[in-house]
């Protein structure tokens, strides 16, 4: 019998149409019936909070998510969704994983909990979209914002009240008043999933240039797949990451310029520098929590240093 996998993604159907479905369709087509992946969207089979556990126990065979929102019980989970202000461009993520050794750390950490880490990719930038404008840090005070757990911890320093809800409920929660805004994605996702219809403003200062997302599989299920199909899985998932790179890169600029549903605001550079300084402190606190975390923070610091020294176009100023 052909191998059958159930893969559940963090994304709802509207976003999934871009960020996962094309890759799954390609895989199923090329695999010619030797293996078939059934795709399920956010919360469809199991709630996102239980997703990791479901994969570990084999209820779900494979998962597309960041470490943070699926609450993986690993040392690297805090770096999951994103790392506040660590990254400037989407190419930073593959560079860190492929040339700076993060890939090996992730594979090792996940193997310890019975999960195969298949591949990491850069996803979209992380900006605020809100109902009332944010023109200065003071405007963040008291805002109830949907965001990643780690970003939430960081943003409480500026008076943000982070709220975590099922991803699919965010649009409704913006309308029922549970949320004042989101700090989750770039403007492409805001328009694609309809959040642009229920928010008014988009803050151009980003907390991350691109957050990190992954594909994982239950270790036993992975080992049952013959090598040529394992290879095909890797290639198709890489293709999914690549699709995002150009889809977001094009979308972020085009929607800012040509669309009018979201008005753009910016926090002055001098004030935003505060946030970056706070983020550096935040990394040091995280590094102090464990050896693995310290190692990852050191790698990212070293990477950023190299990029700054390299100058334009890697880093400006």
């Amino acid at each position: 019998a052909p191998i059958k996998w159930r893969l559940q993604t963090y994304a709802g159907a509207a976003l999934g149409e871009h960020v996962i479905k094309p890759a799954i369709d390609s895989f199923n087509k090329i695999a010619e019936g030797q293996m078939n992946i059934e795709l399920y969207f956010a919360d469809q089979l199991v709630p996102t909070g239980e997703l990791f556990q479901a994969m570990q126990s084999g209820t779900i065979d494979a998962v597309q998510s960041d470490d943070d929102s699926m609450a993986s019980p690993t040392e690297v989970t805090v770096f999951g969704g994103y790392f506040p202000l660590a990254l400037r461009y989407s190419l930073d993520v593959p560079a860190l994983f492929n040339s700076y050794g993060l890939d090996a750390i992730w594979k090792e950490e996940y193997a310890k909990v019975g999960v195969q880490h298949i591949s990491a990719g850069s996803w979209d930038p992380c900006n605020f979209a809100t109902k009332t404008p944010i023109n200065s840090l003071a405007d963040l005070q008291g805002k109830r914002v949907f965001t990643f757990p780690t970003a939430g911890r960081f943003l409480t320093r500026f008076g943000v009240v982070p709220v975590t809800l099922p991803w699919e409920d965010v649009e409704v929660a913006l309308q029922t008043g549970e949320l004042d805004g989101i700090a989750w994605s770039g403007i492409t996702e805001d328009y694609t999933v309809g959040w642009a219809n229920v928010t008014e403003y988009f803050l151009t200062n980003n907390i991350s240039g691109a957050w990190i997302g992954h594909f994982f599989a239950n270790m036993d299920r992975w080992n049952e797949v013959p090598p040529h199909l394992q290879e095909l899985l890797k290639v198709c998932f890489e293709q999914s990451h690549y699709y995002r790179q150009h889809w977001y890169w094009a979308g972020e600029a085009r929607l800012r310029v040509n669309e009018t549903k979201l008005k753009l605001t910016t926090i002055p550079d001098a004030e935003w520098a505060n946030v970056e300084a706070e983020a550096v402190k935040f990394w040091d606190e995280i590094a102090a929590e464990s050896e693995v975390k310290a190692k990852v923070v050191a790698v990212i610091k070293q990477y950023n240093e190299t990029m700054t020294k390299a100058g334009v176009p890697y880093r400006f100023g």
Binding site: P47, G49, E50, T59, P166
Partner: peptide
């Protein structure tokens, strides 16, 4: 019919329901 881990499908609905704030 589920295969491995089918026994947890019942309970995971409980966690889903808990998160349905309305």
């Amino acid at each position: 019919l589920w295969g491995t881990g089918g026994q947890t499908m019942g309970f995971s609905a409980a966690m889903k329901l808990m998160k349905w704030y309305p």
